[in-house]
């Protein structure tokens, strides 16, 4: 009967929506709880340092290598496009602005989400599955303070540094391709770049972006891990959700931030 199908569909939609809203409310409360435990995390500096190591240092290889290649490709493609307008001395500007404003924070953020974010989710999810979090709770140690908050801050501190390193390696890669390989004048490359890239406008905004992305990715990662179903599939689906949700958040936040930060474009 048609009406039955319709009511069923409406009820499912209503259920799903209510569930999502509930989940968001829960996520908000969880996030506030994590932030509330920040002083505790800072007191246990050793734990946070350890998490910076696992999130940041171990991501260095993928970030540096990717940055280098992205910069090199950017230089190749950029040179091809700029020569049509006789503007190949602006290659430095093109590469620097693209990296510092957008590619650095965004691509580094995506890589960070897939490498470090998923690892954090899996680790916390596994601790939940093997009852380590319950054991901690029974020993009157708050797992939010001891397990979750240090990982959150490890991510937030690592992200801007990784984004800066990505951009730096990218510019270096572009230098290798543009100046050494293709033969653009080194002075023009660096000089034009320095004239066009503004500290406050471009670099600070890029850093702000990477901090925002770091907060988003770390929060999603610890949330999914902490609330994973304590089974093997539960942890694996939580890990997948972390990567997907982080990536989408980064891209959406990037749009919003770009609109607000770079309103001067074209004005």
């Amino acid at each position: 009967m048609r009406s039955e199908v319709v009511t069923w569909a409406l009820r499912r939609i209503g259920e799903r929506t209510l569930n999502s809203v509930e989940r968001m409310g829960f996520a908000a409360r969880f996030s506030l709880a994590v932030l509330a435990h920040s002083p505790a995390a800072l007191r246990r500096l050793q734990l946070t340092l350890r998490e910076i190591y696992f999130a940041g240092v171990l991501s260095l290889v993928i970030i540096l290598v990717s940055g280098l290649f992205v910069g090199m490709v950017l230089a190749l493609q950029g040179y091809d496009a700029l020569t049509r307008y006789g503007a190949n001395e602006s290659l430095g500007i093109l590469v620097a602005l693209s990296l510092v404003r957008e590619l650095g924070p965004v691509v580094a953020g995506l890589l960070f989400a897939s490498r470090a974010g998923s690892a954090i989710t899996a680790e916390i999810g596994l601790m939940k599955t093997t009852e380590q979090l319950s054991a901690m709770e029974m020993m009157a140690v708050d797992p939010l303070a001891r397990v979750v908050a240090p990982r959150f801050f490890g991510g937030v501190v690592s992200m801007p540094l990784l984004a800066a390193l990505f951009s730096t390696l990218g510019i270096f890669g572009a230098y290798l391709v543009g100046v050494r390989l293709i033969g653009i004048d080194a002075g023009a490359f660096w000089g034009n770049m320095q004239a066009a890239v503004d500290f406050r406008y471009d670099i600070v905004n890029g850093i702000v972006k990477s901090v925002v992305f770091g907060i988003a990715v770390s929060l999603i990662a610890v949330f999914e891990g902490y609330n994973a179903r304590p089974t093997a599939e539960g942890v694996s689906s939580a890990t997948t959700r972390t990567v997907v949700a982080s990536s989408l958040s980064i891209l959406a936040l990037d749009f919003v931030l770009t609109v607000f930060m770079f309103r001067g474009i074209g004005v």
């Binding site: 596994l126 601790m127 093997t130 009852e131 380590q132 319950s134 054991a135 901690m136």
Partner: peptide, 8 residues
């Protein structure tokens, strides 16, 4: 805890 729940 069952199976120990040691911190890995």
């Amino acid at each position: 805890f069952q199976f120990g729940a040691l911190f890995t």
